[in-house]
Design a protein around this nucleic acid. Sequence first.
DNA 1: GGATAATTTGACCGGTTGGTAAACATTACA
DNA 2: TGTAATGTTTACCAACCGGTCAAATTATCC
Lengths: 212, 212
Amino acid sequence: MAIPRAAKTQRRTRIQEEKEEVILEAALDVFSMHGFKGATIDQIAEVAGMSKPNLLYYFRTKEAMHRALIDRVLDTWLDPLREFDAEGNPEVEIKSYIRRKLEMARDFPRESRLFANEILRGAPLIVEELDDLRKLVDEKAEVIRAWVKAGKIGRCDPYHLIFSIWATTQHYADFDVQVKAVLGPTRSGDGRFEDAARFLEQLYMNGLQIRS
Amino acid sequence: MAIPRAAKTQRRTRIQEEKEEVILEAALDVFSMHGFKGATIDQIAEVAGMSKPNLLYYFRTKEAMHRALIDRVLDTWLDPLREFDAEGNPEVEIKSYIRRKLEMARDFPRESRLFANEILRGAPLIVEELDDLRKLVDEKAEVIRAWVKAGKIGRCDPYHLIFSIWATTQHYADFDVQVKAVLGPTRSGDGRFEDAARFLEQLYMNGLQIRS
DNA sequence: GGATAATTTGACCGGTTGGTAAACATTACA
DNA sequence: TGTAATGTTTACCAACCGGTCAAATTATCC
């Protein structure tokens, strides 16, 4: 009897929902740590607590797993930027953007590393998504430019402003080991995110000449 | 006839010097792009223009190549921070630190990515080096703290200041594809490093309340 | 030029890895 | 409850990959 692949069926079973969830969770663990090529299906299977062929019943190839993960992650990854509101005032908007990005670095470091891995590799399979990203950033850059023109913040290049916020916040997820190694066991507890938030808010408020 | 491994001989031949150079150059290409596990000896051999056993004549294992690369890169990678001078004044020191780090991101992006790959993977084989790093950063953090106490720069956490400079500058090497994708082909020429430098200098001068 | 050491390569090996085949087990549903 | 669809596993394969071996080639030095 021909066995219909889970991926092909139109309706998704309860079991499919559950197992795909478990698999993606395990895959996130392994992919974010070892990168695409470094990760093995066996590893993912072990973390997921099921056999390798069983994984391949839900995702036909290793690449399909990776793709599914990337799609899911990218979607939520840009949410903080989407919320960046033109109507709001710069102080609140920028502060809360930094906060949200730092929270994501703290709460979803694996997602951040998965993304970083992908970009490091030259982003072979997210070219279209990068195009969406460009449009979104263009849009938000306009907002920032408007703030500059209105004299609400100092003159600055909006693109490099956004880059710098991405870099400084994601740094705490992607370079976690380095940060911990430098801060030492004493200062690298959960408090380091508070310290980072305080520093960055101050840096950007003064740096962009935003009066609080 | 027992063939002495190149790595074992005390004296290094002219050929050894040359070939090891060619190999490390190729290895940097491949490792920085695909990560340690993603890179294959065959790939490196092809880029280096020699046969796989020939590579393994100079470096006994893939890991030996990687180790040699890391050692070489790490040494020069921290030079800009070492030059950070306590005697100098904050404006000059911080500005030129940013400049140097940006230049390295521009001129040695592969080295930056190699390092990023290593950290992302949990820095399995540079634990000792991370300890040296910590000492160096501790030292420089003292310098910054002294500047703060002397009222030369605004109050701030010196560690997170250093992290933020690392993050913002290395971002242009590690996330190059993303930066290019966002800026588009028009604005992503060589000029983007000048734009970045201008933005960052302004951000840090104002952000740290350094009067120019 | 010849002996010796250094260098290079084609053929090969064992282990790993992505993926498959097919039998077996379980669930959904009439 | 029976049965067809769905889910799971064991055994396996072919390709790949890190590394070895021995033979061939080239450089070095007297």
